[in-house]
């Protein structure tokens, strides 16, 4: 978190991204997004537009996508708002990458439930493959970030890679996922536990068991 900083605004960056504009499809999409908000409140569209821009940069660079300063300025112009306000949003939310990332952005959740279920091992597995926190590997394939809770605590530990969540991970399962991705295949999203379908209880239900068959009123037993 603390070492997050916008990628330096250099002449090369300006040259590469200074002429950024929506692709025809994204221009259509942006119009739709802006139309969701009432007249005079178009600035509210800043978050979806930034995300759209990040996707477009990703498509152009074959990475997850990020937000160079000229692209942030482009979004500010689109919405007619001061660029510092857009930069504030882009730096506040970690879902916006403000520095270049690799083809796959591996976001390992390190918050308490995941940590208790072994996220440290996942980070170690990532490191073994040459990744380092906050850095992109030399082949441009992986960027590793440790993030806070992604809301998958019931199937902890989890990793988010670009738009997909991979849950119930062990170092071996993570290795498998990463191998598949590196090979250009897309492994199944969600839980990686073969015994589990989604986030249903593992094995027998341990609580609210009486609810399994019929609607049960627990209130008298509290």
């Amino acid at each position: 978190m603390a070492d997050r900083a916008p990628h330096p605004d250099t002449l090369e960056l300006r040259e590469r991204w200074g002429s950024f504009a929506w692709t025809p499809a994204n221009a259509e999409e942006a119009k739709k997004i802006v139309a969701r908000y009432p007249e005079g409140r178009q600035r509210s569209a800043v978050m979806p537009l930034l995300f759209l821009a990040q996707y477009q940069v990703g498509a152009e660079t074959n990475t997850q996508g990020w937000l160079p300063i000229p692209v942030i300025e482009f979004v500010a112009r689109e919405l007619d708002m001061p660029v510092i306000r857009v930069l504030e949003v882009a730096t506040f939310y970690t879902m916006y990458n403000i520095a270049p990332v690799g083809r796959f952005h591996v976001q390992v959740c390190g918050t308490t439930p995941c940590m208790l279920r072994g996220s440290d091992d996942l980070l170690a597995a990532c490191k073994k493959r040459g990744m380092a926190k906050g850095h992109t590997t030399d082949d441009g394939l992986w960027t590793l970030t440790e993030v806070e809770c992604m809301g998958n605590c019931a199937s902890a530990p989890m990793v988010q890679i670009n738009d997909a969540n991979y849950e119930d991970l062990t170092p071996e399962r993570l290795d498998h996922v990463l191998d598949e991705l590196a090979a250009g295949r897309f492994p199944k999203e969600g839980t990686q536990d073969p015994a589990r379908h989604t986030v249903e209880p593992v094995g027998e239900p341990t609580n609210l068991a009486a609810m399994m068959t019929e609607n049960h009123d627990y209130r008298g037993e509290w």
Binding site: M1, A2, P82, I84, R85, L87, E88, T91, F92
Partner: peptide
Amino acid sequence: VDEIGALYRGES
């Protein structure tokens, strides 16, 4: 003149 802003979040 919108020129000063608060970047990042929380303690950062």
